[in-house]
């Protein structure tokens, strides 16, 4: 007997649920993958869905470092139970925004020995490689970097990637190098802004801090949360910025209101 893929099982469950007339959760894939921050996990209904594609973009051009860090942090959490992480970069991306630096990744929580780096010359190759890699069940997650804000990862391309991620049950991250209004067929979309860290008692730099804006979420509300990343224990923690708690933007499943 061979083990059925998670996607097959989910499809079967959905089919059964449809026959029984129950409302189903449209999410596919295995266990959602918790952030460890209550408010975020609540908005995501338990955590980041695996077997899906997630898009990460910097809020401003200068925030690229933070966006890359957030992607690496998620990859580090995904790789906790073993499995390698594949990073796909175009040559242009490496020149424009720097190479992935091994010692830094180690300190940040993403183990270098679990890291594979693929460099390609053309963005289309990057997407092709990602589609192949997402089908491989031995990887924990796949990160592809898109330096251009052009239409490379359009709806069709991201749809293909989503299907591949479903087939393999893998997590895929699209890391954009520039803020863009374009979005593809992704499960969630995050805009990451850097914020000053909370200094330690000697006035030095504190734990890495971000403000995460969830701008697209298929199964819950959008929102905005400041978080800190503990690279040692590989956990996120909520960070209060000393202002009022940030509000959740819109309620889940906004009721349709029709005039007339």
């Amino acid at each position: 007997m061979t083990a059925a893929t998670p996607a097959t099982l989910t499809r079967l469950r959905q089919a059964v649920a449809k026959i029984e007339g129950q409302e189903t959760d449209l999410r596919v894939g295995g266990q959602p993958f918790a952030f460890g921050v209550g408010t975020i996990d609540a908005a995501l209904k338990g955590g980041l869905a695996s077997a899906c594609l997630h898009e990460i973009a910097p809020a401003m051009v200068r925030d690229f470092g933070a966006a890359a860090g957030f992607a690496f942090a998620l990859a580090a959490r995904a790789a906790k139970d073993g499995g390698d992480t594949l990073c796909i970069q175009t040559d242009f991306a490496a020149i424009e925004s720097g190479d992935i630096y091994g010692p830094g990744c180690d300190l940040f929580g993403l183990q270098t020995r679990q890291l594979l780096i693929l460099k390609v010359s053309h963005p289309h190759d990057a997407l092709w490689a990602m589609e192949e890699a997402l089908k491989c069940r031995a990887l924990a997650s796949v990160i592809v970097e898109l330096p251009h804000d052009g239409p490379v990862a359009d709806l069709t391309a991201t749809r293909r990637l989503t299907l591949a991620a479903r087939e393999g049950g893998r997590l895929g991250f699209l890391l954009r190098h520039r803020p863009t209004s374009l979005t593809g067929s992704v499960e969630t979309r995050w805009e990451v802004a850097a914020v000053p860290s909370r200094p330690d008692q000697f006035g030095g730099l504190g734990r890495t801090a971000f403000v995460l804006s969830l701008t697209k979420n298929r199964h819950g509300p959008a929102g905005c949360w400041p978080v800190a990343w503990d690279h040692h224990d590989r956990v996120f923690s909520a960070l209060s910025l000393g202002v009022a708690e940030t509000a959740v933007d819109r309620p889940d499943r906004t009721p349709l209101i029709r005039a007339g």
Binding site: G65, A94, G104, D200, G204, R207, H231
Partner: peptide
């Protein structure tokens, strides 16, 4: 495995991206 650099700070002491 990469030998970790001695850490003397709350924040990582090496960057995640390095310009060649």
């Amino acid at each position: 495995t990469v030998q970790p650099v001695a850490q003397d700070s709350l924040a990582p002491v090496r960057p995640v991206r390095l310009f060649s």
